[in-house]
Design a protein around this nucleic acid. Sequence first.
RNA 1: GGAGAGGUGGCUGAGUGGUCGAAAGCGGCGGUUUGCUAAACCGUUGUACGGGUCAUACCGUACCCAGGGUUCGAAUCCCUGCCUCUCCGCCA
Length: 425
Amino acid sequence: MLDIKLIRSEPDTVRKALARRGYGGAVDDLIATDERRRKLISSVEDLKAQRNQASDAIARIKKEKGDAAALIARMKEVSEEIKNLDAELADVEKALDAKAAELPNLPHASVPEGRTDADNVEIDRWGTPRSFDFFPQAHWDIATALDIVDFERGAKIAGSGFPLFKKAGARLERALISFMLDLHTTRHGYIEMLPPFVTRAVVMYDSGKLPKFSEDMYHVELDDLWLNPTAEAPVTGIHVDEILPAESLPVKYVAYCASFRREAGAAGKDTRGLTRLHQFDKVELFQFTEPDKSYDALEEMLGHARAVLETLELPYRVLNCCAGDIGQAATKMYDLEVWAPGVDRWLEVSSVSNCTDYQARRGNIRYRPEPQAKPEFVHTLNGSGIALPRTFIAILENFQQPDGSVVIPDALRPYMGGMQSIAAG
RNA sequence: GGAGAGGUGGCUGAGUGGUCGAAAGCGGCGGUUUGCUAAACCGUUGUACGGGUCAUACCGUACCCAGGGUUCGAAUCCCUGCCUCUCCGCCA
């Protein structure tokens, strides 16, 4: 949520920034609605002041056993009018909220121009993609041959997009989760969280997932709960409506959570293998920071996500995402893409975003800069640290051997019971 | 799933239709006293929105879980929802 006061006082700045994301036109409409809202507030509050005065008068008259019938009759009409104006005001505010909720955050000056992910700018590369003296296989072939992922039976259980991990595959998935959590808690100073896998609608709204992405999430109608599309949603909710002690900032959480996505807009895309799933595992980084520290925290968090790939010895690149591609709540976003030689593609395994006060305003998450000072909104940041299935893919494809086996990266071996490679049989 | 209790300011806790934004206590802040600390005493102490101001001041409105309703007037009465707690049942 953007600050309506900012939109009102600096419409040109906001318009220009939003135009970079294709929302520039909405500003004037919003300002006009806000204008109407304030006029209505003014008139309805005048009437309420009248009513309050009259109420006192009536009480006094009755106390002195006087006759207040005439005044009561008059106030009946005033109350009727207040009711009508209140209803009108509620409509206008609803419209204003709906319009404001649609608006994304304002892109930072360092965000490149562009409309789609094709316009994202590569800013760094790490590692050298391995050269193969045999034809590298795609992960679905490797995994099927090793019998560590069963796509058909997963589909039998829950449909396509829900793979069944087996044996060393299941263990590898579990090992990756533990490895990442340990890395971030012991080396990067995060506190571990394991949130509910479902989140209430209000919290989804606070985190910016609703109303915009309702089609992309699974909804449990009977209980009005949403399956998390990312741990970002429940973790944002942890401190909703709280005032955090200034000395506690930055608050840094790392959370494992299964992530569920309907991928409604991606039908037919990446249908093979593990690249695009309806359910996947993810370890998520999250920070609540003071406003003036959030961009430093963004760089730091990017480093934390990179450390996962570097420790696993997986080549990757870093993209500075363009204005059209950054998340709804973000002002700036980096993507990490791991190299997958089997499918011959870069695969996105992490997005690291600074959401500044956008989520904090919706969720009313604040801190007190000084002991007696007014509470201010914190800044929130989130970053995948990192998404699992594509890391799983990268391990299979980068460490595959001519005999079909897969060497396990050193860092994971302790989590695999010392296993050095996954071989068939 | 069954039965019951309850949600009031930073906290504890009064308040069942008319100066109630809300008693009292605790905590916080300012002060008096004090060699210092403590104690005591006095004062003060919520948030949001709108108006107003260079900015304060100030004025108005709303907020006693949320949303509706009754009424001239609701923390207080009615309905719905959410949440918490206790007991029983079931269950990993």
